[in-house]
């Protein structure tokens, strides 16, 4: 089951696409993969797509936070896109909508 795929797009954009349930069972692996891609690629923007993520636990949230920190470390912009309603609620609850560049209205 593929939970993470990463693609470097033109214009210095690194697309990280997550899918399925992101939780303590796979968080550490995903963090390793994402960190390596960010540190190795030095992108200008890191874009994380959550459209296919059905569940995040606290470790799953940790993945996003570590990706954000890794992006900050190479001075890249960090953006999270297309959270499902449930994930949106979680990000709102944890106060991460603004840091992840998501509008409060859910757009």
């Amino acid at each position: 089951m593929q939970t993470v795929s990463i693609e470097a797009k033109p214009g210095g954009v690194l697309d990280v696409v997550l899918s399925g349930e992101i939780d303590f069972t796979n968080a550490a692996h995903i963090v390793d993969v994402v960190r390596e891609a960010i540190a190795g690629g030095c992108p200008e923007t890191v874009r994380v797509d959550l459209a296919a993520v059905t569940f995040l636990d606290s470790s799953g949230l940790g993945v996003l936070i570590r990706a954000m920190k890794a992006a900050a470390a190479v001075d890249a912009a960090f953006r999270v896109e297309h959270p499902t309603e449930k994930v949106f609620d979680q990000l709102q609850m944890t106060g991460l909508l603004a840091p992840f560049g998501i509008a409060e209205t859910g757009g």
Partner: peptide
């Protein structure tokens, strides 16, 4: 009410 406050350790 939930006053503004992101989780600890993120920012």
């Amino acid at each position: 009410a939930r006053p503004y406050g992101p989780l600890l350790g993120a920012l």
